[in-house]
């Protein structure tokens, strides 16, 4: 999963403390697998080193970390590029699709357009696999079928999500 990009997306929404980032990550994307604090701060440290975020002054208070993180121009660019690119259409990428849609909705972006682009990428891959299945050996055809059925499942999810975007947007916005 794209933890650094997801954290960038959450920071694109508003400057936040590591604590808030972890809380929102766990609520929307953790799905029973919370992000350890160590990983949150290590990721933020790397993002800061690469100029994608800057950390504010440590604030008074108890607890280990009281810094507010702010996304930079470079961070915004990296995040936006990632968000609008279709995910490579391979089986088992649902979690990345899901993350992109939820982040797009949180940030008020055009999630419908993202889904359309993803749909087109999936269809293109399905055409390639259909061609392989028609022209390849039986073993290739079986493998192509496996890919086709999984991509079809993604597409059903994409279509269902596209039909429910308004309700979803309500659910993920504060």
């Amino acid at each position: 999963m794209s933890v650094p990009l997801t954290l960038l997306g959450l920071l694109e929404r508003e400057p936040s403390h590591g604590y808030d980032l972890k809380r929102d990550y766990d609520a929307f994307f953790g799905r029973g697998k919370p992000l350890p604090y160590g990983q949150v701060y290590a990721t933020l440290g790397r993002l800061a080193r690469d100029g994608k975020v800057v950390a504010g002054e440590a604030e008074p208070g108890d607890g280990p970390e009281r810094k507010r993180y702010v996304i930079t121009e470079a961070g915004v660019t990296e995040f936006e590029t990632w968000l609008t690119e279709p995910v490579a259409p391979e089986p088992t990428l649902q979690t990345v699709l899901f993350t992109k849609v939820v982040l797009a909705l949180m940030l008020g972006r055009d999630a419908g357009q993202y889904l359309d682009t993803q749909r087109a990428a999936h269809m293109r891959r399905m055409r390639e696999l259909t061609e392989l299945r028609r022209t390849g050996a039986l073993v290739d055809a079986l493998l192509a079928d496996h890919g086709l059925f999984h991509l079809e499942a993604d597409l059903r999810w994409i279509d269902l999500t596209a039909a429910r975007l308004d309700a979803l947007a309500e659910a993920v916005r504060p």
């Binding site: 968000l83 609008t84 279709p86 972006r109 359309d116 087109a120």
Partner: peptide, 9 residues
């Protein structure tokens, strides 16, 4: 009709 290229944000 959409191509599978990325779209501008």
């Amino acid at each position: 009709s959409l191509s599978a290229e990325g779209v501008a944000p």
